[in-house]
């Protein structure tokens, strides 16, 4: 390496993002119960199986899912597609003839999924976030920010203050309500939790 410095000396060390990512992973050993819930699921094979189309990247051919004309050698190189446009018709398989269709959903209920994701992260890591927040509040940077926010709040007019309070209250209530809905959805008919994340994927 080109530097004669000690490790990290005079160089940018790990940023906040690195620290946060590593801290999240440490939770796994500190709190196995919380870590039993998925943090982020990249594997979307379950959703991909129900997608209406598959693109064979080797042959460059677009198929309906399960088309018998898909070569065996291309089975490890298929990408699920939820929607195709008219411009993609030129790559359509002549055997199964996939057509663009309005009723095929691409990413159903994406906003709801995002909202649930947000609530889930807050719920799962509330303890860590609060602890980190308290540490930050005590730090010089945190105190400076706190003073600036107080100053900003004081300069707001009555209407702006009322609006800000309403927004914060509404967000708080929304998070609480979503958490309750999520808990309800996560129960079996007999009232027990079903485990796992239970939320499905974003592109299902």
């Amino acid at each position: 390496m080109s530097t004669g410095n000690e490790p990290g000396e005079g160089r940018p060390g790990p940023g906040f993002g690195d620290w946060a990512a590593l801290s999240l992973q440490r939770l796994r050993s500190h709190d196995p119960a919380r870590a039993a819930r998925p943090l982020l699921r990249i594997d979307n094979r379950a959703e991909a199986m129900s997608a209406p189309f598959q693109f064979d990247v080797v042959g460059g051919t677009l198929h309906r899912t399960g088309c018998r004309a898909i070569p065996a050698s291309a089975r490890t190189a298929l990408y699920a597609l939820w929607r195709i446009g008219p411009e993609e018709q030129q790559r359509a398989c002549p055997w199964c003839r996939p057509v663009p269709s309005e009723q095929h959903q691409d990413v159903p209920a994406e906003r709801t999924a995002l909202l649930f994701g947000l609530v889930s992260v807050i719920d799962q890591f509330a303890g860590v976030l609060k602890e980190r927040g308290r540490d930050f509040q005590r730090s010089p940077g945190g105190q400076q920010l706190s003073a600036q926010l107080d100053q900003l709040y004081r300069t707001l007019g009555q209407r702006e203050k009322a609006l800000l309070d309403t927004v914060l209250t509404t967000l708080d209530q929304l998070v609480e309500r979503l958490r309750k809905v999520d808990e309800e959805l996560g129960r079996d008919p007999d009232g027990r939790g079903k485990g796992g994340d239970g939320r499905g994927g974003a592109d299902g």
Binding site: A21, L22, Q25, R28, A35, P38, L39, R41, I42, D43
Partner: peptide, 18 residues
Amino acid sequence: LETGWFEIRSDRERLFYV
């Protein structure tokens, strides 16, 4: 890939994970 959790056991793995 299934859960987002990755058990880090060495400096090399820490670098990889970061």
